[in-house]
Amino acid sequence: MEARVLKPVLGVYCAAFILFLYGPMIILAILSFQGPGGGPQFPIIEWSTYWYQHLLGMTPPGRISRLPIGDSLLRSLTLALMTTVVSTVLGVITAQGFRARFKASGVVFYLVILGMIVPGVLVGLGMALLTNMLGIDRSWWGTAFVLHVVYTFPFAFLVMLAIFNRFDRSVEEASLSLGVSPVQTFRRVTFPMIFPGVLSAMLFSFTLSYDEFSRTLFTSGRQLTLPLTIYGTFSVEIYPNIFAFGVLTTLFSFTLLLIYALLMLRAVRSAQSFKGQEEAE
């Protein structure tokens, strides 16, 4: 009886929660269409795409300086791509190694997982200290990159570990029994079958790296990545151009998500078969 009342009440509450999650972003999106003379708040003095043009450098130079997103966007994308490749490769081979039993597996597991637990500002600080001592220059493609991998590799590893846990080993054994070497078996059987997992690991790594800034803050040297550029505006007055940027970068992320969803759909369709074989067990 109570449940009958409770369910609609919780439903309304849940809707309110979703509004709480999305509210600020919706307000931000609305304010990004503020007119040239308006500030980063209501009222909207006139609807326009001025701040989008301002962001893309299509307005005459004025009082408000342009966000330096061009170069930093390129750096962030490159960094995210590098991180994705390395952490996915590390994730796949480490998870593959974990399929055999070995004594230190517990310690190694926690060592890897620690990478996603340790606050970025701490490893960032540590890396900065280390490079100071060794006299190495810090750069986004060097010191920041290795820290990004420290952060995203555990995610890729966990995804692959979950995939291998559900993996039917007999398919690989079948390949071996046909005279196919372990390396070829991995290439021709294992990899095609774990590909959806690899895609997920890549998506995780890319989005985490693309948005990462606490690890980058102390380690990227003079050249800023995109999140650092945004972070730079925290200490100064903000203008609606940053709102416009927020909308654009969100749209970009959704495009990425859509591409992933389409790739995933294709991969899952071709590997669906798995279910059919499990029935036989």
Binding site: I93, G97, A100, F102, V108, V118, L125, F153
Partner: peptide, 29 residues
């Protein structure tokens, strides 16, 4: 086979040791 497994996990272990454990030790130091 155990050696192969260890070879597979060593790049990850090396990476985490060099770029996470070492910096953390550095902070304490």
């Amino acid at each position: 086979e155990r050696r192969t497994a260890l070879m597979l996990i060593s790049p990850g272990v090396l990476w985490m040791t060099l770029f996470m454990v070492l910096p953390m030790i550095m902070v304490v130091y």
